[in-house]
Amino acid sequence: MADYSDNQSHEEDLEHSTRRSFFKQSTAFGAIALTPAALVRAAEHQWDEKIADVFEKMPLNIEVNGVKHSLKVEPRTTLLDLLREQLDLTGTKKGCDRGQCGACTVHVNGVRINSCLSLAVSNEGKKITTIEGLAVGDNLHPMQDAFIRHDGFQCGYCTSGQIMSAVALVKEGRTHSREQISEFMSGNICRCGAYSNIVKAIEDVKNSGL
């Protein structure tokens, strides 16, 4: 078996060198992904070149928790994976990766969304707020504090998403009744079953007028 510690181990692969050299070349010329695909149509039947092209990263300017980032990302990288795997902001959680649980909830320009279904590159120029950006220094956001006081979580894995959703919920003004809070928090699944405490935490924040 080949030495797997070396990525370039498949020397028997005739197409291999083509791909490698193409990679080097395209890297040297910088990102071309924004270029119309026609540019590489000539090489369309050349599997490796096509792959190499589309794998080329794209520039992305994004502000996360007040910090501006100029990045290069693959188009297929989701905002969630960008946050967790590249920016080491692991507070935003992956629970399903398909928009079915809400653990990945973040704010984009102040609006709560599921970051697992958002391509990172679609967020060019946008302001992202994650759970790490909610507290100001040592001062917790009132919602964070309320979640602690009302024990609105157990394992803590859905908590970031719950809190991001709850903060948005209050801003949206959807706290007129327990039923409304419950309904509009239903995009965040908590398997530990902390729902009733989550509702109490939200009611508390709402009642305190914060």
Binding site: T92, E132, G156
Partner: peptide, 10 residues
């Protein structure tokens, strides 16, 4: 919860 702060801040 003693680890509450860690859990609500990510």
């Amino acid at each position: 919860r003693v680890d509450g702060r860690l859990k609500v801040t990510g």
